[in-house]
């Protein structure tokens, strides 16, 4: 409960700033609409107003500032508008039994979630196996690690279309597989780095101890290195799953996909529906928050049990 106050304070600050930003962002559109509806605006004419600053416009036409908060297609919607749109496309549709219609964000989030989980699983496997190779082989340490780092310097937005083109050339139907690959591409890296650190966490005397038992390499991996790496693994997985979600959404953007949160964002952009963009963005953020929280709880329970603290 003590943590709640600072969180709410920051949240309140963000919402306040957001509301303050809405008026200057939307005032031109609001004035244009008001003028078309017959109101007198100073200065007259949309073109004239282009050279006047938004704050000047707000001061001169203060009676129309309210309208900036209630536009149908605002440049920047208010939090309340986003919330209402979000509810309209999720809870409301679920209540009407249409949770999985293609107008529902639940449906699109589900599509994105599936790819995210596949990408997460793939990235986790690649990351863990890569880490084991790096820790146990000097050659892998020197050759794999630089490539892993280089891979993360290439913008995924540039790479995503190529992955989709290549996989369609290879005869892979649908968008699921390339999306999962793009997602795994972002997600394997934190897992790899965390696991390398985790597998190397036992200190030399602990490894020496196992040597005095004449333990095999496999035994020291299973009994010491692997359990010692688990706290590091969980931390990496939390970063990894958020990266996997971003990867999936990026994978849905450039390719004319019709379903998934990324597709919603793109469609909202193309059809000038900012509310759709914003609600899809928030749906993605909520989804990421849920996934990370789920992993966090798993971590607490698993590690707490492991050390007898829970």
């Amino acid at each position: 409960m003590r943590n709640l106050l600072p969180i709410l304070t920051v949240l309140g600050g963000i919402v306040l700033l957001w509301y303050l930003a809405v008026a200057p962002m939307n005032i031109r559109v609001a004035l244009d609409q008001a003028e078309r509806a017959g109101s007198t605006i100073t200065p007259e004419g949309s073109v004239e107003r282009r050279s006047v600053s938004v704050f000047r416009l707000m001061a001169d036409n203060s009676e129309h500032v309210r309208a900036a908060y209630a536009l149908d297609r605002p440049r920047l919607p208010t939090p309340a508008q986003v919330g209402a749109e979000l509810w309209k496309t999720t809870g409301d549709m679920a209540l009407k039994g249409r949770a999985f219609s293609n107008r529902s964000l639940i449906y699109h989030a589900w599509i994105t979630l599936q790819s995210t989980l596949w990408g997460f699983a793939l990235g986790m496997a690649v990351g863990i196996l890569g880490a084991v190779a790096i820790v146990y082989s000097r050659v892998a340490d020197m050759s794999l690690m630089p490539w892993a780092i280089i891979s993360q310097t290439i913008p995924i937005v540039a790479l995503a279309p190529m992955i989709i083109v290549v996989s369609s050339q290879l005869g892979i139907e649908g968008r699921g597989v390339p999306k999962a690959i793009i997602s795994a591409y972002l997600c394997f890296f934190p897992v790899l780095v965390g696991m390398v650190k985790g597998l190397r966490a036992p200190d030399p005397s602990q490894l020496d101890l196992l040597k005095t038992y004449d333990a095999s390499g496999l035994q020291s991996f299973l009994k010491l290195r692997l359990p010692a790496s688990l706290p590091f693994l969980f931390t990496s997985l939390k970063i990894g799953i958020a990266a996997a979600l971003v990867g999936t959404i990026v994978g849905e953007l450039p390719t004319g996909a019709v379903s998934g949160l990324g597709a919603r964002i793109l469609i909202g952009d193309q059809f000038g529906a900012p509310l759709a963009i914003w609600s899809a963005l928030f749906a993605a953020a909520i989804l990421a928050g849920l996934l990370v929280t789920l992993l966090d709880l798993t971590q607490r329970v698993a590690l707490g049990r492991m050390e007898g603290r829970a």
């Binding site: 196992l210 038992y213 359990p227 010692a228 688990l230």
Partner: peptide
Amino acid sequence: RAYGYVFQHAGLYPWRTIGGNIRLPLEIM
């Protein structure tokens, strides 16, 4: 298995009970 070695730091595995830690060499052997 001629010797048992004790290091300066106990180096018990935090994820094993005391009994589990003592079983460690026995499991390996």
